[in-house]
Design a protein around this nucleic acid. Sequence first.
RNA 1: GGCGCGGUAGCUCAGUUGGUUAGAGCGAUCGACUCAUAAUCGAUAGGUCGGGAGUUCAAGUCUCCCCCACGCCA
Length: 572
Amino acid sequence: MARVLITSAIPYINGIKHLGNLVGSQLPADLYARYQRSIGNEVLFLCATDEHGTPAELAAAKADKPVAEFCAEMHQVQADIAKGFGLSFDHFGRSSSPQNHALTQHFAGKLAEAGLIREVDDSQIYSHADGRFLPDRYVEGTCPNCGFEKARGDQCEECTKQLDPTDLINPRSAISGSTDLEVRATKHLFLCQSQMKDQLDAWIDSKADWPILTTSIAKKWLHDGDGLQDRGITRDLDWGIPVKKGTEDWPGMEGKVFYVWFDAPIEYIAAAGEWAEANGKTDADWQRWWRTDMGADDVKYVQFMGKDNVPFHTLSFPATILGSGEPWKLVDHLKSFNYLNYDGGQFSTSQGRGIFMDQALELLPADYWRWWLLSHAPESSDAEFTWENFQQSTNKDLADVLGNFVSRITKFCRSKFGEAVPEGGSYGAAEQALMEDLTKRVRAYEQHMENMEVRKSAQELRAIWVAGNEYLQSTAPWSTFKTDPDQAAAQVRLGLNLIRLYAVLSAPFIPTASATLMQALNCTDDSWPSDIETALAALPAGHGFTVPENLFAKITDEEREDWQARFAGNRD
RNA sequence: GGCGCGGUAGCUCAGUUGGUUAGAGCGAUCGACUCAUAAUCGAUAGGUCGGGAGUUCAAGUCUCCCCCACGCCA
């Protein structure tokens, strides 16, 4: 039995994510986790909320709540929505957990011991009215280059010139609008990534089987311009993980916290510790997933993320791990996704454009979204969500091909043989051909799933559903019944077993519908079909079942038009 | 401006190291069937593979130039 560690990029705490975020990391990670569990592997699937940083503080202030309280509430909201989508995390942690505090400080200490952290004197804008230091992008003013009045301290959006906050004319706080600003001297820690460039380069080179999208982004950061740059890993904020060297204080860094990009990926590890604690397990239980000296040697570690997260996962986080000099598990396979666009534009959290996870669940059950999003996952390039496509695809695939298959076979059986698997007849050439075809297709499906080729997996699964309709159409039990009821019984028996097979195979994509089918079939045997003929004998003659309600209702034109209009504008 | 990923049938996408008549699903048209959620199954039509030049016996697949879209960076 193989062991697979799976992490999804951790969603930021300040709001509910849209469907583009979902399909870029959490959903495909869940598909893979469910599949790996189905075939009998031991899986640890971890995710968490990313809770630190200025945006969290500002969102809390806007909600008029202490930031810790705000984060705790939003974490629960996100956890509930994730559950609604059937995301099967073994643990959904928090980057603000005690485990992550300890681990982040531990890594910083190790990196310092290895001589990979240096102190840098810096200056930063302090706002008296806000009572805080302002990150560059929260300082606004007039661009010295083009005169644009709402230029940000990091860049002018009008002329795209890179700026320093002190370049701005008439600078003001983007938070309060206050002009009572002051440049203050401060000191920050930098992670010396540049020293690790060759080590990282060699590591990336060893990953020949990674997607081009992934390696090309990493290579670019390694080689562009002056090469990989050192990065600041601390900030002058209140909310975050206090800067410490392991458990020791860090002289000169009092009152500072680690920057969110430093502590967020470490939460992948800390989440395992949270998982152990929440489930009454020991440290050894989680360390056997993460420490190669404590049993993680045989673990395969797979990360899922959107393309914007690739640099952190290919360079920054590995730099932290390698630099520590400790035997932590490095990622084995990294699956990255492009963006999902919404009706000709981008999904946008800040503009409230597109469909958000909570809204989606109000419209339709999770399986509709899971199926469409996964079967259209933006793997090779950006993908496009349109309501027409969504309606057509889900109606055809889920309602017509799969749902109607279940409907026709169970209802036919009920009317001719009653609600139990019928007895009699035997399998012949048609059944043999079907089984051979299914064997080939299931093996292909497994291969695609193993390779994390999401669209191809969906395509193959759909073809497996179609094979059942082809079989019924060609053998026509409704005709057979008139002349040879025994033979019709055998055909129906096979059809009912196909439903069970489909429930098992489809569970990673549409877990709720699969569970509904298993329940209707009064069956608990969800073992993966290593042998198709055996799998199609799971429901013996005489086994009782009930006819399920329509598995998937169709989306009507009226509904589609209604939703299209409702989501044309902004969320707020 | 530099770099990156793309530009393949009306739509969404596949196309391994260059090799016979460029594939799938949807949509469209026609036919079959009637068990079923007016569902299903079959067949047909639709592409000068963004444009141009080049390498080669042979290019969607390699080289160069250009155009378009998106993204990242300066």
